[in-house]
């Protein structure tokens, strides 16, 4: 651990400007959400479907700006400041609910069904803030390339790990990165889907998973195709 003062300086500036930016994004997002609801509820003049769709796009992109900002800051803290996950006991069904609440309005607008599956009484031990960032960025990717259905589920694995799984009914992951449990950033470069680059999200997911250690077990991620819904399967394993 070093204590270079210029680094501290940069970290502080980064953190404070991100704080302000996030407040602004929060207000943009919330105003948009309100606007969409108001437009829909309007009785007199029917809002054109294209306007609603455009507002939906703005909302989606603002969420992505937020996700990317969060990922960048988290990467900075992990790589430069040695940030370690802060393990908490998590009630899994609540966690899944929390992960999807922000994205639910968008899913609803695009006519996408979001199914949550968590066995009652299942607990996980991980950093909920880091893992929810992973879940959120994977979900906001999936929502673009799936057809009409997403399933977020959690499973207790035999080796004591918790698996959080996201399945979709899209075209699936490209062959280039399939089957690799731990794709590197180079391999992920250029992995692009309609609507945005998923490479960084996968890299971030892997990093977060691997930071989680418990009694000789290390977390990881897996990508596969042909889910029960027909599309891709993303899984994060947490020890």
């Amino acid at each position: 651990m070093t204590t270079d003062s210029s680094r501290d300086h940069f970290g502080a500036i980064l953190s404070s400007s991100i704080h302000d930016t996030k407040s602004s994004i929060a207000i943009v997002l919330l105003s948009l959400e309100r606007m969409i609801i108001d437009l829909r509820n309007q009785q007199v003049v029917q809002t054109p479907a294209t306007t609603l769709a455009q507002l939906g796009t703005i909302n989606y992109q603002a969420q992505r700006i937020n996700d990317h900002l969060m990922q960048l800051l988290a990467l900075y803290r992990i790589e430069k400041e040695g940030f370690k996950p802060q393990i908490q006991e998590i009630y899994m069904s609540e966690f899944l609910e929390d992960c999807t609440t922000m994205i639910a309005p968008l899913a609803e607008m695009r006519g996408i069904t979001l199914t949550l599956e968590a066995p009652a009484g299942l607990y996980g031990y991980f950093d909920p803030h880091l893992v929810s960032m992973v879940a959120h960025s994977m979900l906001s990717g999936a929502i673009i390339y799936c057809q009409s259905h997403l399933r977020l589920s959690v499973h207790a694995e035999q080796n004591g790990m918790i698996a959080i799984r996201l399945e979709d009914d899209g075209k699936g992951f490209p062959a280039a990165i399939l089957g690799k449990r731990q794709p590197s950033l180079e391999e992920l470069e250029g992995v692009s889907f309609t609507g945005g680059n998923l490479g960084l999200a996968i890299y971030f997911a892997r990093l977060v998973a691997e930071l989680h250690l418990n009694q000789g077990l290390q977390g990881g991620i897996a990508l596969a195709n042909q889910s029960s819904l027909g599309g891709g399967i993303f899984t994060i394993y947490l020890p």
Partner: peptide
């Protein structure tokens, strides 16, 4: 803890 940005549903749920 609740992380910004959050919407009405998330606040309500928490």
């Amino acid at each position: 803890y609740i992380t910004k940005p959050f919407n009405k549903s998330l606040l309500s749920q928490r």
